[in-house]
């Protein structure tokens, strides 16, 4: 428990420390690509999440999506 909170703090610090990270609006071309969308594999991920949810002891993390099911 303590270790993961520590890790969280370090990572948040890393990200906020880099507030200058990023690109200019006209440098976002790559992110407009269809395959660069964060939900490009949404269907696959939902299917996998459902399988892992029913086969493994922990679940979630990626998104809120999902929900209850009697398979676990």
């Amino acid at each position: 428990m303590r270790t993961d909170l520590k890790l969280l703090i370090i990572l948040v610090a890393l990200l906020s420390g880099c507030a200058n990270l990023g690109v200019k609006p006209w440098e976002r071309g790559q992110f407009a690509r269809e395959d660069m969308q964060l939900d490009a594999d949404e269907m696959d991920m939902a299917i996998e999440d459902h399988i892992y949810f029913s086969k493994e002891g922990s679940s979630g993390g990626r998104t809120l999506a999902g929900g209850g099911c009697g398979c676990n």
Binding site: K24, P25, W26, E27, R28, G29, A32
Partner: peptide, 16 residues
């Protein structure tokens, strides 16, 4: 000039 400066999304466009 430079097309890559445009941001094109499904519903909208950002033209600098």
């Amino acid at each position: 000039v430079g097309f890559e400066r445009l941001i094109i999304e499904e519903l909208r466009l950002f033209l600098p």
